[in-house]
C-alpha cells in the first residue's frame, strides 16, 4: 500500500486498518483489563473515533491514533475501577500422543501458569502476553506500549522472573 496517498475515509482502507490492527489492539487492552467485553467496546469506540476523524488523520498515523484513543479510554473508564481479573487464556494446541499422566500434569501446570500470569503487574503482563500470544517483536511492543525496546526487554525479563518465583519448583 502506498502510505502517503491512502485516505482513512476510504472504505477499503478503513477495512484494511481494521483487519490489520483490531485483533492485537483488542488483545492488548484485554491483557490490561482482563475483561474481553470491555476490551471489545474500547476497540469499537476507537475505530468509530477514527472514522469520525478520518479526514484529519493521515493513513500512517492511524495505528498510533487507535492505540492512543484506546489507551486513553482504558485509563478513563477502566483503570480507576478495581479490576477483577478474569483472564481466560485458552490452551491452544493439544498434543494427543502423550500419556494421561503427562497430560494431567501439563494441564495442572497450565492452570497454575494462567493464574500467575493473571497476577502479574499489568505492565509486565501486557508485554509478556503480546510477546508470547500475539508473537510480537520487542520493537513492535515498544511501539504499542509506548516505551523503548530496552524497557520492553526489562519488563519481559521481570515478567519471567516473577512467573518463575510464583510458580515455584516443578
Amino acid at each position: 500500500m502506498s502510505q502517503e496517498t491512502k485516505s482513512v475515509c476510504d472504505e477499503k482502507t478503513y477495512q484494511w486498518i481494521y483487519n490489520t490492527y483490531a485483533k492485537t489492539l483488542r488483545n492488548f487492552i484485554y491483557y490490561k483489563c482482563g475483561d474481553i467485553q470491555q476490551a471489545e467496546d474500547i476497540v469499537q469506540n476507537a475505530y468509530i473515533k477514527l472514522w469520525n476523524n478520518c479526514s484529519k488523520i493521515v493513513f500512517k498515523n492511524a495505528k498510533s491514533f487507535l492505540y492512543k484513543v484506546a489507551k486513553n479510554e482504558f485509563l478513563n473508564e477502566v483503570a480507576h475501577k478495581k479490576i477483577k481479573l478474569q483472564h481466560q487464556i485458552y490452551l491452544a494446541k493439544e498434543s494427543t500422543n502423550e500419556t494421561p499422566e503427562f497430560l494431567l500434569e501439563e494441564k495442572e501446570f497450565m492452570i497454575k501458569l494462567k493464574r500467575v500470569i493473571a497476577n502479574l503487574p499489568t505492565k509486565q503482563r501486557e508485554v509478556f502476553l503480546l510477546s508470547r500470544i500475539d508473537k510480537k517483536k520487542y520493537s513492535e511492543i515498544s511501539e504499542i506500549v509506548g516505551i523503548t525496546v530496552k524497557a520492553v526487554e526489562k519488563r519481559m525479563s521481570s515478567a519471567l522472573i516473577t512467573l518463575r518465583e510464583q510458580i515455584g519448583n516443578i
Binding site: 488483545n27 484485554y30 481466560q88 485458552y90 491452544a92 501458569l113 518463575r164
Partner: peptide, 11 residues
C-alpha cells in the same frame, strides 16, 4: 514457562 505460554491463546 516459555513453551507453555506460547500455547496460550486469547479468547
Amino acid at each position: 514457562i516459555n513453551d507453555t505460554s506460547q500455547m496460550l491463546e486469547a479468547p
